[in-house]
Simulated scan of single mutants.
Amino acid sequence: MQTVTIHEAKTHLSRLLRKVAGGEELLILRGKVPIAKIVPLDADHAPRRLGLDKGKIWIAPDFDAPLPEEILHAFEQ
């Protein structure tokens, strides 16, 4: 993984992004501290289709019912 400073990243952004597009990962440092990581997007990344888990998930009819008082009270402390 290549590391660059913020200044280098700003100065050579186009060149660095070509490397990332080619599969490399890039770590950006502020001084010696890593602050960001640039990774290539997954080429097979596609929007998720709705309904893929139809029939696989069960939700209780009362899933949105009010919580019992003792549990609700624990959240309010």
Score class of each variant (00 low, 15 high):
14 S>C: 08
66 P>C: 02
4 V>E: 06
1 M>L: 10
62 D>R: 15
4 V>T: 02
20 V>L: 04
31 G>M: 04
31 G>V: 05
11 T>V: 12
12 H>L: 11
71 I>D: 02
25 E>P: 09
68 P>M: 04
18 R>A: 05
56 K>F: 06
27 L>Y: 01
68 P>E: 01
76 E>A: 11
14 S>W: 13
21 A>G: 07
76 E>R: 15
42 D>T: 00
9 A>D: 05
75 F>Q: 04
47 P>E: 06
56 K>D: 09
70 E>Q: 11
60 A>D: 10
40 P>I: 06
51 G>V: 02
27 L>S: 08
69 E>L: 12
71 I>H: 08
17 L>C: 05
28 I>L: 10
31 G>Y: 07
56 K>C: 09
12 H>G: 07
69 E>Q: 14
50 L>D: 11
60 A>C: 08
72 L>H: 09
74 A>I: 13
51 G>H: 01
75 F>D: 01
48 R>G: 02
62 D>S: 11
38 I>C: 00
76 E>P: 03
40 P>D: 02
64 D>H: 15
55 G>Q: 05
39 V>N: 01
24 E>C: 07
68 P>I: 07
48 R>Q: 06
2 Q>W: 12
35 I>H: 05
13 L>P: 05
74 A>H: 13
42 D>M: 01
33 V>P: 00
50 L>I: 03
17 L>G: 01
51 G>L: 02
40 P>L: 04
30 R>N: 02
31 G>I: 08
44 D>A: 01
67 L>W: 12
14 S>R: 14
48 R>V: 03
40 P>Q: 02
47 P>Q: 01
33 V>C: 01
35 I>G: 02
44 D>F: 07
67 L>Y: 10
73 H>L: 14
62 D>E: 10
40 P>Y: 12
15 R>V: 14
25 E>K: 15
4 V>G: 04
72 L>V: 05
77 Q>D: 06
51 G>Y: 00
30 R>M: 03
71 I>G: 00
33 V>M: 11
18 R>Q: 11
46 A>G: 02
3 T>M: 14
25 E>M: 13
77 Q>Y: 08
48 R>F: 05
66 P>I: 03
65 A>L: 03
70 E>D: 13
71 I>M: 09
6 I>H: 15
41 L>V: 02
56 K>M: 12
32 K>D: 13
7 H>Q: 13
52 L>C: 03
6 I>E: 11
21 A>M: 12
19 K>T: 07
30 R>A: 02
50 L>S: 09
46 A>S: 05
30 R>G: 00
